[in-house]
Design a protein around this nucleic acid. Structure first.
Lengths: 329, 329
DNA sequence: CTGAAAGCGCTAACAT
DNA sequence: ATGTTAGCGCTTTCAG
């Protein structure tokens, strides 16, 4: 790797001048040319490590998500990347696996790597985010809340749950169950509260609790929960899942039982990734994953640029694609 | 951020000793204790930037993939991450969008960030990989070939195409079409050559070319190509798609036309992500995505550790899950 | 075993 | 407008 000293020597100027040319400070056109030629000739690329050590900051944004294999988060990542790229920043994607320890580890790395900022889908509400914010490094929470008052971009989870459930009742289903994630995770609890809210008005009141299943929030969890629901004495005729992956699992279980929507109503909070079903067989509450990402990135970039207004919370709304009506029996 | 100077001062030793403690060099037990306590008290985290500038190397691995939203590549990424984590390395995921310019940009970054190595699913066969290898930084190619003789981990694409096509003929289909990616991409051409090879033996010879569709290799491409095939005078009764995403598109187009496998045979090279279809309705040639990642990471880590044997190429095999037989008419 | 000091490549005062 | 120089935080000779 050539250094600015070598470039300077070849161009017959001082290293400082080379640095100035690189950073667009005032230099005579003549020397600019000389430096550019020398840099070209030596295939010079500035050493980011040295620059960073000097500047105590980099053009790197850390994006911490629970799972790169979940399309919701990859879409979000795409949104972040688009905005970041355009502003000259690179994004470092980190998998936390929803493990607070891994999250902490990555936050420490963000610090010791002098990253410009962090976008975080928090694994828990009480992570070590202060380590980062205390050092003046901006952090934006996305999709999930933190205990701290920092910028955040959320989805109206309650409304999403309500919308999914309402769509099913409107389509003529009467016994609407819910497959929710584990207790204690705010996003899934909110969505299932939305379900409960609608069911308590429009459903057959006494069956509410039997119709609420908690599962791990992945495909296998959704599948198991759906199987359990189908095995009930008086099974539901429709189901809401509080995320995309459990939706896939539920549909798999239905398919294995020989049941096809809309014979059984299905509403998913989230987008069914790569679905090969007929588009309006089911109801989808589309979460604005990518938009979540672009919004978070925009806010973070503002903070990086020095904006220090009070913490903001943006709540994005999901929009619904309603599935077909329940077929007559 | 506390520095080793502050730790040293607090512990009453020299910065060099602090460094030694951190790096496990020989230091008297007494001072080790002193240093550890001081570090603890100051919440000291070593500055990676400074360390890297000094050492000219980091514990960062760059992973360049065309698309984070493609489950094949996220599975691969998981594989890389697992191995890397275990060895104390962090993985930086970079999206190239199959754009050689972006690829070059990221390779430059890998250089100027002093990354330990690069795992690359190349966007083209003649990228600027030399920039990196010339600097002695190890690079492992994965999933696709480069022009250079470097370590690589591949899939037997031809065999995958053969396996997919054979499964369809064996299941009783007679007019097997192929939806391939754009011309000029080796991986998809190889897979479609596998198809051609089988069809020329077992198929109705004269229709080969009409049954070969080229599409962009994403969902919409597969869908359009499938629609085109269905509109032919004598349409096929089965189709092979050369990747996962086009498989999804093809299934969508079939579903829109009211056709359900196995009434129409479908074989996909790659895994159908999050499929809600009945598991054996279609044939899948499972590409060992994760294994590709772990293998590449293992090879890269060996190189990083100093291994300098000649370049190796590992070819992994796909295994097939056969779909149902064609129903009698 | 330990400390002093140089230097990784770059940038930002400070001079000129 | 340009050159000189110090220093970002760390590791590693080199002395002792």
């Amino acid at each position: 790797m050539a250094t600015i000293y070598e470039v300077a020597a070849l161009a017959g100027v001082s290293p400082a001048t080379v640095s100035r040319v690189l950073n667009g400070a005032a230099v005579s056109p003549e020397k600019v040319r000389l430096v550019r030629e020398a840099a070209e000739q030596l295939q010079f690329t500035p050493n980011r490590t040295a620059r960073r050590l000097r500047n105590q900051s980099s053009e790197l944004i850390a994006l911490l998500i629970p799972d790169v294999e979940n399309p919701f988060f990859t879409a979000l990542a795409r949104g972040v990347e688009d905005k970041a790229q355009a502003a000259g920043f690179s994004v470092v994607l980190c998998n936390t696996d929803d493990d607070p320890a891994k999250e902490t580890r990555y936050l420490d790395i963000a610090n010791s790597e002098d990253m410009a900022g962090v976008i975080l889908a928090p694994a828990s509400e009480d992570g070590d985010i202060r380590h980062v914010t205390d050092r003046g490094r901006p952090v934006v929470a996305v999709d999930r809340n933190t205990g701290l008052t920092i910028d955040s971009v959320m989805v109206d989870n309650r409304a999403a749950g309500v919308a999914a459930t309402t769509a099913l009742f409107d389509a003529g289903y009467e016994r609407v169950a819910c497959i929710a994630g584990p207790l204690g995770l705010e996003w899934t609890e909110e969505r299932s509260l939305g379900w409960r809210q609608v069911v308590s008005k429009r459903g057959a009141g006494e069956t509410i609790d039997r119709y609420l299943q908690h599962a791990n929030y992945r495909v296998d969890g959704g599948r198991a929960a759906m199987a359990a629901l189908l095995a009930l004495d008086s099974p539901p005729d429709a189901v809401v899942t509080t995320n995309n992956l459990m939706g896939v699992g539920a549909l798999q279980a239905l398919s294995e039982a020989g049941i096809t929507p809309p014979d059984f109503g299905v509403a998913v909070v989230g987008d069914l990734p790569f679905s090969t079903l007929h588009p309006d067989a089911i109801t989808q509450v589309h979460l604005p994953a990518r938009h979540l990402g672009t919004t978070a990135a925009t806010m973070l970039l503002e903070r990086i640029a020095g904006d220090d207004q009070p913490a903001r919370t943006v709540v994005l709304r999901a929009d619904v694609t309603r599935g077909a009506a329940r077929p007559a029996r």
